[in-house]
Design a protein around this nucleic acid. Sequence first.
DNA 1: CCTGATGCGTC
DNA 2: GTCGGAC
DNA 3: GTCCGACGACGCATCAGG
Length: 595
Amino acid sequence: MQTRTISLTVSRLEFKTLCNYFTNLEATTKRNEMISTLAELFQNSDEEEIDSISYFLVGDITADYKEVKLGMGEEMTKSSISLALELGEDDVDEKFQELGDLGDLAAEVEHGPEKKFAEFFEIDALTVEKVHEGLLKIANTSGENSQEIMKKTLAALLSAADSCSRRYIIRLVLGQMRLGVGDMTVLDGLAAAFLGSKDDRPPLEHAYNVSSDIGYVAQILAKSGLEGVKRIRVAINRPLRPQLAQRVDKITEVREKIDSDTISVEEKYDGERIQAHKDGGKVRLFSRRLNEITHQFPEIVESVSNHVEADSAILDGEAVAYDFSEKEYFPFQKIMNRRRKYDIEEYAEKIPVKYMVFDLVYKNGSSYLRKNYIERTEEMHEILGEHDYIAPTGRILTDNLDEIDEYFQDCISRGLEGVICKSTSSNSYYRAGAREWSWIKWKSSYASELSDTLDLVIVGSYAGKGKRAGTYGSLLCASYNHEEDIYETVCKLGTGFTDELLAELPEKLSDAQSDKKPARLKTTENVEPDTWFTPKHVIEVKGSELTESPVHTCNWDPEKERGLGLRFPRFIRWRPDKSPEQATTTSEIVQMREG
DNA sequence: CCTGATGCGTC
DNA sequence: GTCGGAC
DNA sequence: GTCCGACGACGCATCAGG
């Protein structure tokens, strides 16, 4: 065994000091103000802890793609707070409903800690690094008794913290800082701190998009300056942030938004985004959020390995569950069965997957990011033929809007989700991490005539969190089963409301509020809103699709223990003209689903 | 050994 | 994933 | 137009506790 003296970098920024910056950031909605606060923070940060600080700002403790999971959510956190601050579980629940933020709750409680929980995590001074270490310890705890150890480790951190620090420790555990600061704002702040102005963000953004690690970019910038950052390049086995698509509500907008005459119209599959890295004979797969999912799709690994004619390559595409005997796509829920750790081979046979490739980002040592769409996809077609489990994404190239629509209709009739329209202009580069108008999605569910619009009865509500504190976060919605004269849940609904509507909701619904669950409402055990409402108020709700549900009771099948649920529900408008019996009926919903 | 609660990640 | 608000 | 943070359904893994 080798011992060596490590020169300990004494970077001992008090966590409390960092929390002052958090507080200032949270106090404003002006991005420019945030950026100057961030710039000041970064200028005062030691280069050894600027990475942790960057992660903290966006509510993480490491890069997204590193397999570090806290394993503590709301429930465990509540329990830890209760333990550390000696507050009854019921008090915590009640306060949480009121405040909508467990961090605020932990900050509010007055408590001089009796217990220190030092046997779980010893703290002499609560520095930034100490908090980081504690959070990593929680993430690394597993196995028997792990929940107790995690709770007590967090309790140790809380016991060593002042009120304000408790707020942000809790928010870090939950991964929600609610500062109004996201990754792009952090990059602006870094640019302002080290390069003079937020306008100098582009090279940082590029490094981030290619490395997917904001802490790394921050640290390289602090240590080696812009030169160091510019050396960060696309690399095999390091996932890059996938390019995303904008959406459009009318197909005619595609023509206005896309900057090239010729538009590539690609099939859009309802599957899972996968970035494949081929490194000689080795293949690794990464998900949309850059988690490694290589082991989940052996057939894709094999296909990329055998049918991609390149020594090294990075491909972008969508894995879609495919029924080879019927020659049709399986619904999205099927591919979710493939997100597993066990019985992989069995499920690979039951639910095979086709990897539909639409882009080539890297080949044989060269980045293709700065090649245009046509160049990239031509090469992609050259190295990739059509095989069982891998194929290039179907597409047409056209400058004609009618042809786009025709192709879209054709895709819908073949069971696809819609199309993605892409620019073919000379600067149609692969813009890692960007959601821009060079890629536009047009889904069937955006077209009103193809989407499911339901009039549903409000039967419950859930307390809002964060900026929804004090009002409702979501509403429990039900259909009317006219045969049995009962109401059956279809979805919770938490988006589509304006702030104004949201603010007046409690008042508007107060006349229907009830202490008990309505007698004629059927629910499963998993559905337990904070407030019940007697069926009275009707609202129009739009969704993209009706799916089989284990939690919603609409058209409940006792044998399968499944009902119907609405995917992507959003509020459209109030329907004061409708009585609850005039709401969409369960049988109408069944008909919608059948087609 | 099984089940429900909880967390996490896909869309 | 969808959506609305702030800039 | 961009960025951020509210919120949705659903499936698998893990752990606690019977």
